[in-house]
Measured scan of single mutants.
Amino acid sequence: EKIKSDFFELLSNHHLDSQSRWSKVKDKVESDPRYKAVDSSSMREDLFKQYIEKIAKNLDSE
């Protein structure tokens, strides 16, 4: 859970929106230790998708 929250924090530093693509974001964040803390690339992508869904819901509710 800490790894997930750290990863979300990392993503939040990059001002993403619901149109952001993992392939582009990954290049910007892959040197960060919070990125490396997530064991697998599929898990990183899953967390990215969860984060994008979360910010999309937040935008819808505003």
Rank of each mutant, 00 (worst) to 15 (best):
K26M: 07
Q50R: 07
E45G: 03
F8M: 06
S18A: 13
D27T: 14
K36N: 08
L11W: 00
S42Q: 11
K24Y: 13
H15V: 09
D6V: 01
E53A: 13
S5I: 11
Y35E: 01
S41C: 11
F48D: 03
M43T: 14
D60E: 09
M43S: 06
D17W: 02
I55H: 13
D27K: 15
E53M: 09
R44N: 00
L59T: 15
F48C: 04
S20F: 03
D46W: 08
E1A: 07
L47G: 01
S18Y: 11
K28H: 15
L59E: 15
Q50Y: 06
E62K: 15
E9P: 00
V25W: 09
K26R: 10
N58K: 13
K49Y: 10
E62S: 14
Y35H: 03
Y51F: 05
D6H: 04
E53R: 11
L10Y: 01
M43W: 06
K26L: 05
L47V: 00
D32W: 00
D39L: 11
K57Q: 13
S42C: 13
R44A: 12
K49H: 15
L47H: 02
V25N: 04
R34G: 01
K49A: 10
V25Q: 03
K4M: 07
E1L: 08
D17P: 02
H14P: 00
S12V: 03
L10S: 02
D39F: 09
E45A: 07
S5L: 13
Y35S: 10
V38G: 01
I55Q: 10
L11N: 01
D17L: 02
E1F: 10
S5K: 15
N13T: 12
D46F: 12
A37H: 03
W22C: 00
R44I: 02
D6L: 02
W22A: 01
K24H: 08
S61Q: 13
F7Y: 05
R21L: 11
L59C: 15
F7Q: 02
E45K: 07
N13W: 04
H14S: 07
D46V: 12
N58A: 06
R44K: 05
D6N: 06
F7W: 01
S5M: 13
R21S: 15
S40Q: 07
D27Y: 15
L10N: 00
M43K: 13
N58F: 06
K26S: 06
V29F: 14
H15P: 09
D32A: 00
D39M: 10
H15Q: 14
L11K: 00
E1H: 05
S41E: 15
S18G: 12
D39C: 11
L11C: 04
D60H: 12
D6S: 04
R44H: 04
Y35A: 09
P33R: 05
S40V: 04
S40C: 13
S18I: 08
S23Y: 05
I52Y: 07
S40E: 09
Y51W: 07
K36E: 07
K2L: 04
S40Y: 03
F8L: 07
V25S: 03
A37V: 04
W22V: 01
R21E: 12
L59A: 11
I3H: 07
S31M: 10
Q50F: 05
A56D: 15
I52E: 04
K36W: 08
E62G: 13
P33S: 10
R21D: 15
E45F: 07
D27C: 13
S18N: 11
L47A: 01
N58Y: 05
S31V: 07
E30Q: 14
M43G: 06
D46R: 10
K36Q: 09
D60L: 06
D27E: 14
L47Q: 01
D17V: 03
Q19H: 15
S31F: 10
D39N: 14
L47N: 01
M43A: 14
F48E: 03
S12F: 04
D46G: 07
N13H: 15
S42G: 10
Q50G: 04
E1Q: 05
S20W: 04
S31R: 12
A56V: 09
A37S: 05
K26A: 07
S5R: 12
S31N: 12
V29G: 00
N13D: 15
L59V: 15
F7A: 00
N13F: 10
S31T: 14
L11H: 00
K54H: 12
R44D: 01
W22E: 02
A56T: 14
K54G: 11
S18C: 07
L59W: 08
Q50A: 12
E9L: 06
S31L: 08
D39E: 13
P33A: 10
S31H: 15
P33Y: 07
K49I: 06
S5E: 10
S23R: 07
K24P: 04
S31G: 12
Q50P: 01
E53G: 08
L47F: 12
D39Y: 08
K24Q: 15
Q19W: 08
E1W: 05
E53C: 12
E9C: 05
D46L: 12
S5T: 14
D27G: 15
K4L: 05
L47T: 01
L16P: 04
I52P: 02
K4C: 09
M43R: 09
L16C: 13
S42I: 11
F7I: 01
E62F: 09
W22P: 00
E1V: 05
S31W: 06
D60K: 11
